[in-house]
Amino acid sequence: MTDGDILLSGRNLSKQFKGLRAVAGVDIDIRRGEIVGLIGPNGAGKSTMFNLLSGFLPPTTGQLFIAGANMTGATPERISQQGLVRTFQHGSYLPSMTVRDNVLIGSLGGMRNARVSRAEQNKGIDEAIALFGLSNHWNNVAKNLSHGLQRLLSMAIAFAARPSLICLDEPLTGLNQTEVTGTLQVYRRLKTDYGMSILLVEHNMRAVMNICDRIYVLHHGEIICTGTPDEVKNSDAVLKAYLGEAHGI
């Protein structure tokens, strides 16, 4: 764990809900500038995993390190200050506020401990809005945007906080093909231009295989496979897990 390249490291993370073990002894590492996928059949524990990493749920056992600091049991606010920002699967924006104010909230969170001039701050906000293609909508109220634009907005809010790791919960759901292609392009820029890492929970397998450097496959709360997209594609364990699910349907 002294590896300077490692940004996030979860050790033996578990979450027990009354009778159910939603996440069981998961080890996960994310390096700087890496795009990591987290996939698995429905109910595999992906959402719980996300909540554990971002501090929205305390783990039952295990430890979490972000940028070298022990963040086990820390609040979401604290974890965000340490550089991990997440989005939510549903309604990850502020419905009554304009696009610009939405992004402002992200930027305020990111700059909580920094002294930044108004001009610099405004530049950062405009940059986030432009990056996610929202420039024409900056003064629109978020609840009136199309579903696709709302998805982009939720990512813009997270980006505006300038995290070192951005965790996205099914960000491509409901986007059309052009939007998906454009968004994947943005992910590459987050990585190359801004040096950010991305953790992606996504059902769109083509997109995941296309963009990710490395993938974790979660099944029944355990990591059953990890590796490059090609390695994962050819894993028997993964095939069985997904076939099992397809069988169930």
Binding site: S54, F56, T75, P76, E77, S80, Q81, V85, R86, T87, F88, G91, S92, Y93, L94, P95, S96, M97, D101, N102, L104, I105, G106, L108, G109, G110, R112, S154, I157, A158, A160, A161
Partner: peptide, 24 residues
């Protein structure tokens, strides 16, 4: 002010406000 915008943001969705590092 910016503080007031955080107030309204909390009303809208406090988890989003929290997730980007604002102290809700």
């Amino acid at each position: 002010s910016h503080l007031g915008k955080i107030f309204i943001a909390i009303r809208d969705n406090e988890n989003v406000v929290r997730s980007v590092g604002n102290r809700v």
